[in-house]
Design a protein around this nucleic acid. Structure first.
Lengths: 332, 332
DNA sequence: CCCGGCGATGAAAAGGATTGCATTATTTGC
DNA sequence: GCAAATAATGCAATCCTTTTCATCGCCGGG
C-alpha cells in the first residue's frame, strides 16, 4: 500500500539507488536529477521505511531517556528540551521512569538497548558495579553524573549552591542547614561542594538527612530544621523545599521572618508557593537539549570520542542562576 | 556481531523457521523442541532484531502518546500507566507534548505515524476538520474525548463533578462558581454536564471563563470568584484550583471559612497545598493503562472494531472518587 | 586519437526475521 | 497394517532500503 522507493524510482525514471542517494547523499547525484527525484518523491508522498533503513544501517533513529521520577516536575522540563532537540535531528525519544531505583535503571537500559541508538540517563542512581553492566550495551550520555571516560552533561550544581550561600550570607545568615538528597545521588555530592563556600563567609552549616527527594521528606525535615536553631535552610531540591514551607506554615513559623528557605531546580510550582520559593535555576531544559546533542555527536563520530577526560567542562549556557523570591529575607 | 536467529538455529540443530515459531508461535512446535530452542536462545542471549521483524510484519512495537502539557503533573501519571501497560506487551512508548495546540497535535501524529503502530491521544484539542486529517494515518485511541466511530477511554468527568456538587450541597452551599477550562476542551463540556446536578439541589452556578488551564488563570479567577459572591468554587483542574488558593490566601480570604475550593485530577501537589485541596481523582494512571490496552486490542483485531457506537461506556475501574481534604467546609 | 580518471548512475547483494507452501514424521481410523 | 489426516519442520520468498561494485560516458592530457 505504502509508496516505496521503487515507486519513486519508476516514476522518476531512475534506479532505486539514485533515489536513495538523491534523498540521503545529495552530493552524489547531479543537481537536476536530484531535484527531479525529490519532486517526484514529494508528489507521491514517499516516506522511507525506517525499519528497512534500520535493518541495513543498524540505526534506529530512536533515543532513550531515563529519568528517576517523572512526577518531579523538574524532569518533564528536561524531557521537553531533549525531545525538541531530538526532533530537529529526526529522532524520536523513548521515555522511561526508573522510580529512583538504580537496579530498575539498569533493567530499563537493557530493555531499550536494542531499540535505540543511544540513551540519555538522568541523575543516575546506579552504583559502580551496576554501571559496568550497562556501559557496554549502548552509547550513554549522563546528565548530572560524571562517569570517567563517558560523556556527560553536568549542570552547575556547585555554582548554584555557591550563589545560594552568597545570597544567604549577604542577608546576614550565620547558621544554615542543608537538607541532603539521597545518598546515592551524585548531584547531592556536587551540591555539597558548592556549600563549602559557606566557610569563606564563616557560616556554620548543619547537615540533615539524607532524605528521599520528596515533599514528605521536606515536611519531616522542617521540624529538624527548627530544632537545629538555624535561620536558613537550603534543600536538595524544590519538591523538598516545598515540603519544608508547608510544614513551617503549619507550625506557624514565619518565612522568611524566622527561617529563610532555598530550593533547587526552579520547578513551576516553586513560583506558585506561598511564599514564592527562592531557588536555583539549573536550566534543565537546556541540559536536556545539550545531552541529546552530545549523544548525537557521539553517534556521529564513533570511537574517536573517548578522551580520558574525567570531567566535562561546564557549558556556559548551563550556568545556574539564583532566582530570588519571597522565601528568603534578612536573618532574624 | 549480534546473535541472529540463524545462530540459534544452528546451535539448536533446527531451521530458522522453527526458531522463529518456537519463540513467537509456541503452539506450532513440539514442546521438547520449543524448550530446547528457547534454552539455546537464552544461553546465546538472542534478541530478535525488531527492525527486521518490523520490516516483514509491518509492526513497529512502538506506541505514541500525545499529551497537551507535560508540565501539568496530571499527564505524567497518565503516562506512567500507559508506559507500564505497554511494557507488559513489549511495546515502547514515544512521548510528545503538543503544548495545548491542536495544530501541533496533528503535526505530531503525522510525524509519528510511520514509526508507531498506534497513538494514544490525550485530551485532544483538535477541531473536527483537523481531526479528519489524522484519523486515517494511524490507529488512534482517544482519552477524554469522544470521536464517533473511534475508540476512546473516557474518564468519569461528569460523575466526578456530580460528587463534588453533592459534597458542596451537603455542606450547605447554595451559590457556587465553576471555572471553565479551554473552550476547545471536550473534557470541560463533560464536566459542565456533571455540574447540572446542581439543579437537583436548587443550587445556583455561576460560570466563569473560559480560562487556560494554568496556575495564573486560577489566580486571575480568584478575584472574580470573590466578586461573584459565591461560597464555593469548582475549578476545571487542580492546577487552576491551586492558583485560586494562592490568590485567596494573598487576599486574606479564609478557605474554607469563607470560600470552599474544589479541584479536579488529584495531582500530587493537591495534597501538599495549604489547605490541602479537595479534588476529584479521575484515575489518570488507570486511564493511561486502559487506553494502551484498548489500542493493543484494536491492533490485534483489525477492522472488526468499528461499531458505530458513539460513546464508549464508562469502565468501572475508572469511576471517579472525590477526595475530601481541607479546602472544603460548611458554607458560611 | 587513445587512455586514465572521474562523475553519475545502475545492478545486485545484504541485512534478519516471518510465513506460505512443501515436505516429512506421526498419529488416527478402519 | 495401510491410507488418510494431522502435526512438526524445513525451504525459500519477501519486506524496503542502503551500499558496494560495476558500468558508462565524458573530459583532459599525452
Amino acid at each position: 500500500m505504502a509508496v516505496t522507493i521503487l515507486d519513486v524510482a519508476k516514476a522518476a525514471g531512475v534506479s532505486v539507488s539514485t533515489v536513495s542517494r538523491a534523498l540521503s547523499s545529495p552530493e552524489m547525484v547531479r543537481p537536476e536529477t536530484r531535484a527531479r527525484v525529490r519532486a517526484v518523491a514529494d508528489s507521491l508522498g514517499y516516506r522511507p521505511n525506517l525499519a528497512a533503513r534500520g535493518l541495513i544501517t543498524g540505526r534506529t533513529a530512536n533515543l532513550g531517556l531515563v529519568v528517576p521520577d517523572l512526577t518531579n516536575p523538574f524532569f518533564p522540563s528536561l524531557l521537553k528540551g531533549a525531545q525538541a532537540r531530538a526532533r530537529e535531528a529526526d529522532h524520536a525519544v523513548f521515555l522511561a521512569d526508573s522510580q529512583e531505583d538504580g537496579a530498575e535503571e539498569a533493567r530499563l537500559v537493557a530493555a531499550m538497548a536494542k531499540q535505540v541508538d543511544g540513551v540519555v540517563m538522568c541523575a543516575s542512581r546506579m552504583d559502580r558495579p551496576l554501571l559496568e553492566t550497562v556501559l557496554g550495551l549502548v552509547p550513554i550520555v549522563f546528565i548530572n553524573r560524571a562517569v570517567p571516560g563517558h560523556p556527560s552533561v553536568i549542570m552547575d550544581n556547585a555554582g548554584g549552591m555557591r550563589q545560594a550561600v552568597d545570597h544567604l550570607a549577604a542577608l546576614g545568615h550565620r547558621r544554615i542547614a542543608y537538607l541532603n538528597g539521597p545518598r546515592s545521588s551524585w548531584t547531592n555530592k556536587e551540591r555539597r561542594k558548592g556549600l563549602r563556600r559557606a566557610d569563606r563567609h564563616g557560616m556554620e552549616v548543619t547537615h540533615l538527612g539524607p532524605f528521599a527527594p520528596r515533599f514528605e521528606s521536606g515536611q519531616q525535615a522542617a521540624d529538624l530544621v527548627i530544632a537545629a536553631g538555624v535561620s536558613a535552610v537550603v534543600a536538595y531540591n524544590d519538591v523538598m523545599a516545598l515540603g519544608v514551607l508547608s510544614r513551617l506554615a503549619e507550625r506557624g513559623v514565619p518565612v522568611p521572618g524566622r527561617i529563610s528557605v532555598v530550593g533547587c531546580d526552579d520547578i513551576g510550582f516553586a513560583a506558585m508557593a506561598t511564599p514564592a520559593l527562592t531557588t536555583v535555576d539549573l536550566r534543565g531544559e537546556r541540559a536536556g537539549r545539550a545531552a541529546v546533542e552530545t549523544l548525537l555527536d557521539v553517534l556521529a563520530a564513533p570511537e574517536q570520542s573517548t578522551p580520558a577526560r574525567t570531567r566535562a567542562p561546564l557549558r556556559p549556557d548551563l550556568t545556574a542562576t539564583l532566582i530570588v523570591r519571597a522565601s528568603t529575607g534578612p536573618a532574624a
